[in-house]
Write a protein that binds this DNA or RNA. Structure first.
Length: 269
DNA sequence: CCATGTACCTGAAGGC
DNA sequence: TGCCTTCAGGTACATG
């Protein structure tokens, strides 16, 4: 489900609602959801601030950090809002001393909440967040042009740019005119620069439209996103390409469903 | 280093 | 109706 724009939308809402709250209790309803990597008690801790790197949400407490990944179907919902707990898929409930709650729903149970003192152990495995000021076009080109892997595979790996998933990788590659199965090293530098710009555009556009809802994604207030109304290739197979009118194809790249216009997107190998 | 397959899970959709 | 297969926004890990 959630890629950078969806996670960013939730983070912006949590930033408004959570700082200052004190954790009273944590109820874990599906044990694998909660990964304790510290012995420090979470109860009694105060929320200082909320940050994000790639698709990870960091809830900074006064004495530890809660690192959350929503994976495919995770939802963080602020109770007391118009969002109600979907009790069937509720995996974790954090209750605050003021009576409000943060609920973690997750139909497929892939999502995780890591309680740790050292979030770097998790975050150092991924590259730079797409919106990190140090994630520049020159840095991106240098990283990508040195690799021999497939371009879509690299974008999905989070190892260079963190935040893209299947939707925005397909949309960015389409806008840049690069076939997803292209080999990184073979893509001309001007094309890579274009790709960097399109990634920035696609992600910012999606943030400004509150992310995409295919089925499960909801923001912290239970609202759906709007970006799915603007997809150019994702789930548009069989429809005409907005550029050339040829049919959008659905193929398999990096073992993922991949949407492509074979006419507009050049295969570099 | 890289590609591929599998595992983790539930549920919707399509074929028969 | 029901049974079976496939697929889904993500990532970690094992195996060549």
């Amino acid at each position: 489900m959630p890629e950078l724009p969806e996670v960013e939308t939730v983070v912006r809402e949590l930033k408004e609602a959570l700082p200052g709250k004190i954790i009273k209790t944590v109820d874990v309803l599906w044990p694998k959801t909660w990964v304790a990597r510290t012995d420090r008690p979470i109860t009694g801790q105060r929320i200082e601030r909320i940050t994000r790197k790639g698709k990870y949400i960091l809830v900074h407490l006064n004495d530890s950090v809660l690192v959350i990944h929503l994976r495919m179907t995770g939802q963080l919902l602020l109770a007391n809002a118009n969002a109600k707990a979907d009790s069937k898929h509720l995996r974790c409930r954090i209750v605050f001393t003021d009576g409000s709650e943060l609920l973690f729903n997750d139909q497929r149970k892939f999502g995780r909440m890591y309680h740790t003192e050292t979030p770097d152990g998790i975050l150092s495995k991924i590259g730079k967040d797409a919106f990190d000021p140090y994630c520049t076009v020159d840095w991106f080109v240098k990283q990508v042009s040195a690799r021999r892997t497939g371009i879509k595979s690299l974008l999905l790996s989070q190892s260079v740019i963190a935040g893209l998933g299947n939707i925005y990788a397909d949309e960015s590659l389409f806008r840049a005119g690069i076939h997803p199965a292209s080999v990184c090293q073979a893509v001309p530098v001007p094309r890579l620069k274009r790709l960097f710009d399109e990634i920035q555009y696609v992600l910012k556009f999606a943030v400004s439209h509150m992310g995409s809802t295919i089925s499960d994604y909801r923001d912290a207030y239970g609202n759906v996103g709007e970006t799915q109304k603007f997809f150019q290739v994702y789930q548009q197979q069989g429809k005409p390409c907005p550029n050339c009118g040829n049919e959008i194809q659905k193929i398999r790249v990096a073992n993922r469903g991949t949407h492509v216009c074979p006419h507009c997107q050049i295969l570099y190998r």
